[in-house]
Amino acid sequence: MTQPFAVSFDQVQKHYGSLTALNQISFDVKPGCFFGLLGPNGAGKSTLINCMSGLVRPSAGSVKVNGYDVIRDYRQARRQVGVVPQELIADPFFSIKELLQIQSGYFGLSGSVQAKWIDYLLERLALKDKAGALTHQLSGGMKRRVLIAMALVHKPQVLVLDEPTAGVDVDLRKTLWEFAKALHAQGHTIILTTHYLEEAEALCEEVAIMKSGGLMALETTEALLCRHQYRYLRVKYSPQSDQEDTESKLVPALASRLVEHEAHVLVFRLDKSVSLNAILGWLSDSQVSVADVSSRDASLEEVFLDLTAEAPQC
């Protein structure tokens, strides 16, 4: 028997009056995948995640989690999913540990095994010292960790991280990613939305890019990066050369491809079909006294900008 997809979106639509928040979104997330869901603000990422977790009802289409329809089989579907919401949610009445016990109760989980799991989560997320504190007594980073613990309290197969590192300091961000990677290594499917595209590039095996409620791209991160037809050439020239003079002497083929010029470093955005020999020839024609040359492929951020904005073409 074939294993169902971790998540399946089929022609999902969501309308708020005349606004189309999701426009016939269809794609699947493989089990055990570290999946990135990217897009500018208002692209529909959170709405899509909310459709999956049952927080929002789709206007049309269906969403399945591990084969369970989120509307028809909502009980089973919600047991499969843990969501770390974007907003820092607080409950003013209960301590962190009580909240985890209450949340376990919502899933019908109690007893010594569950108590040990809660202790493990508190320990693993460095919340043990704060177990008796109320949420409003915690810092933003601590609150974020509480939300992660809440999402994991029922040991879901699919973990959704909706911009989990927004407003989080570098140390905590590192801790969170190490934890996410460990969960992924244990076989959990992780769905991540983030504005830090370098994180998505480093962590995600597959990426979907959304814009205005539609799906702009869906590929493995590697394929997405390779698909980009440009590369970036960084040319460092002699510090003795004058910057303005150097730029003014660039031949048109290079001048039109210049994207950055700072501290005696020129950065060109070049079509991959342009040979290195041709570039070196143009640099020679431009009388650039080259000190160092390096090239790199486009980053996910640049691919993202190309797909979601009208990026300049070379």
Partner: peptide, 18 residues
Amino acid sequence: IQSKMHGNLTFVLLSPIS
């Protein structure tokens, strides 16, 4: 209304409670 304003109603809505 407090749960809606604080956002913690989300915890209940994410659960399998009918």
